[in-house]
Amino acid sequence: MSHIAIQTTVSIAACVLSLAATCFAWQQIEISRTHNRLTVKPMLQLVPQLKGPGGRNGLYLTNTGLGPAIIKEFTVESGRGVFSGLGPDRWAEALSAARLKADCFATGWPRTETPIKAGDELSLLRLTSAENSAPCFAELVKLVGGEGVTTIIRYESVYDEPQDLRSGSKVPTPAINALYRMVMQK
């Protein structure tokens, strides 16, 4: 083999190895980007609570993910209406459309760009200080045992990746169903 042929072979091998190393590095960068996004991915859940007098009673929005969630859109569907927007509280209208007494609940309607840190929760609806009164507890039973409300939430991660949550307040357990039937018979 001539000296020029050996140099050409070595040059081609070096180019192939360089190209392979570049491809491998690119793949590692993509894996790292995916990992970084997943380590700060939020995961919102709507959590209805019916613990009874003295316990947690209401509708809570919880971030069980690893990063903050930034709420971009918030909608409540209830009964005969759809109530959307960020800012002014619209729970009184939504609860009225669901045939529930709004004065039994302390409300929290998200504002523009509301952040929810990982592990935190936002109280959307909870029984007021009158929670020991039977009529208000009955309203909560109607919320979590009947048709209740459905929330549609669009939120983003810190990487501006949109996610959607559509969840209802109904808790379909035999105990809640029995309690709901008792409340509705009164």
Rank of each mutant, 00 (worst) to 15 (best):
V171R: 06
R126K: 10
P115Y: 01
L19G: 15
E147W: 02
G52P: 04
Y159H: 15
P48T: 11
D160Y: 15
T9G: 01
T34K: 04
G146Q: 03
K41H: 12
C23Y: 14
S96D: 15
A13M: 11
V141D: 03
S96F: 12
K142V: 00
Q7R: 12
V158I: 14
G67H: 12
L61D: 02
I6S: 10
G168A: 07
Y180A: 01
I176C: 01
K186T: 01
V141I: 13
R99N: 07
F137G: 03
Q45C: 08
R99K: 11
T8F: 09
T8E: 11
L95W: 04
S84R: 14
S129R: 11
C23R: 14
T128Q: 00
H35R: 13
L38N: 05
G168T: 07
P53K: 08
N132W: 11
T150E: 15
L125E: 05
H3M: 15
K117F: 13
E161W: 09
T114D: 08
V16Y: 03
L46H: 09
L122G: 09
L44F: 06
W109G: 02
L140V: 00
A106T: 13
D160I: 05
R126D: 00
D160W: 14
L100K: 08
I6K: 14
S84Q: 13
A178I: 07
L17S: 13
L66E: 05
R80I: 07
S167Q: 15
P162Q: 05
P110M: 10
E77C: 11
S11D: 08
R80T: 10
V10L: 15
I6D: 11
V149I: 15
V47H: 10
D120I: 02
S167F: 09
T64G: 06
A92P: 00
I31M: 04
K101R: 11
S129V: 05
L95R: 01
Q7C: 09
L17Y: 10
L44N: 04
E77F: 15
E93Y: 05
R99S: 11
A25I: 02
R33A: 04
R90T: 00
M182R: 15
D160E: 13
V16Q: 02
